[in-house]
Amino acid sequence: MAYNHKAIHVDTFRCVGCHACEAACKVEQNIPPGPKWIEVIEVEKMVGAEYKMFWKPMACFHCGEPDCLPVCPTKAISKREEDGIVLVSKDLCIGCMECFRACPFGAPQLGFDGKMEKCNLCVHKTAGGGVPACVSTCPSEAMFFGTTQELSSLMRKKHSVRSISVNGAGNPSVGSASAAKAAEGRTQVVRLSNKAGALSNH
């Protein structure tokens, strides 16, 4: 994935499983019931001695090297150079579902016209500098949108804030991955504003 390619990052510690992103996606893209371009998946995980509930909104990841792209017999799937968005051309798609087999994440959906459709990162908005509908809707500010470069800097920030808040300021050397992992177990997570810097979700 190139530095300028855009993606959505989900902070699973902040996601509360409200499904607002699913609704926003349906409204924005005008999708009838059935295909889900984004779907919030519930996962139970043992944290410490108790089970905790996590949610992960699953859309298309717009992979750096998409598995769906080479298997398409009609060249209907393409990846844009400028922002890495993986798009499908409905004119070319024959609905053979080869991409369904290839995608490990279940991103391709079968539309009512019998053709594949999937998250397009709200290309009509993001191409002009906007933010996808799911991200701008997320009430718990768990979703972040940006280039991979922006997102990695956000994640660094997130990691450092968490590790410092666990280990106390002034002792950065202890702020290791293990400390961050300990922080992950906490239900109370340091609030991280994604309004700062180049990122915006409103």
Partner: peptide, 27 residues
């Protein structure tokens, strides 16, 4: 049900920090 099943499988691996899956999508 096919895609939902796939999404469930990979979401579980994401939450559990499966490196292989995480590297695949970079974010």
């Amino acid at each position: 049900e096919y895609t939902t099943r796939l999404r469930k499988n990979s979401a579980i691996r994401f939450i559990n920090g499966d490196r292989e899956v995480a590297q695949k999508c970079d974010t």
